[in-house]
């Protein structure tokens, strides 16, 4: 079995100073290279908070979090940002493309963040990824000129720009029609299989979760199920 690229040990997260509300109550979790994992749970169960911990967008109140073998707890903001940009990719429900940048520039942004600026040599890889998501002809368009589904595919392309080991997708199809939703999910599966990129997909869609190789269920800040889709979700 491959080494885990992500490991959480007893991660807790509380909010509020006087009356602390514990949202994550001791999460132990490992994700290995190339895994396609769905994270499910009811609203308010702590899915997004957990995703923020894994994405290094927030810091745990307690516990350890290892990314690519590195203990992230003592790292400063610069090191965290560098690690996040190099190791992780993000796809959000509401696309969140930068309207001031063209499609190609949006895709290049993670690489530009590492290099300190947009460089012409980045366009080769950006166009290659854009072609892979089927939007070659949209390179110089503005995000607002694209449909929701197309924007989400651009967001997927952006997440892949730095060839991350793990892509975190928060409801990536939640805001799309069925056809676009299927297309985006197929794209994630295809990238997962072709490049051995691990995916952690937060979703409410049980049908979509069943198509992943592993499902984690979280309820009230605790993992209550982790295994094959049929084991966690039950028979179809």
């Amino acid at each position: 079995m491959t080494q885990p690229i992500l490991r959480l040990q007893g991660v807790r997260r509380s909010f509020g100073a006087e009356v602390a509300v514990e949202v994550l109550k001791g999460i132990d979790l490992e994700i290995r290279q190339g895994e396609l994992v769905a994270l499910i749970g009811p609203s308010g169960s702590g899915k997004s908070t957990l995703l923020n911990q894994i994405g290094l967008l927030d810091r745990p109140s307690a516990g350890r979090l290892y990314v690519d073998g590195t203990d992230t707890i003592g790292l400063d903001d610069g090191a965290i940002t560098e690690l996040r940009g190099r190791f992780l990719g993000f796809v959000f429900q509401f696309h969140h493309l930068l309207p001031a940048l063209t499609v190609l520039e949006n895709i290049m942004l993670p690489k530009a963040a590492q290099a300190g600026g947009f460089r012409s040599e980045m366009t080769v890889r950006a166009r290659e990824i854009l072609s892979r998501v089927g939007l070659s002809e949209c390179a110089d368009k503005w995000p607002k000129q694209l449909s929701g589904g197309m924007q989400q595919r651009v967001a997927v392309a952006r997440a892949l720009m730095n060839a991350p080991a793990l892509v975190l997708a928060d409801e990536p199809t939640g805001n799309l029609d069925t056809e676009s939703s299927d297309r985006v999910f197929e794209l994630l599966v295809e990238i997962n299989e072709l490049h051995d990129t691990a995916f952690l997909i937060v979703t409410h869609d049980r049908a979509l979760a069943r198509r992943c190789e592993r499902v984690i269920r979280i309820v009230d800040g605790r993992i209550v199920g982790d295994g094959l889709p049929q084991d966690v979700l039950g028979p179809e």
């Binding site: 967008l57 993000f90 969140h96 930068l98 309207p99 942004l109 993670p110 963040a113 730095n162």
Partner: peptide, 16 residues
Amino acid sequence: SGQIGIMRAVGVRRQV
């Protein structure tokens, strides 16, 4: 603010 959050998420440093 949403765009700034995304920029930070994809690796844009605080100083940038």
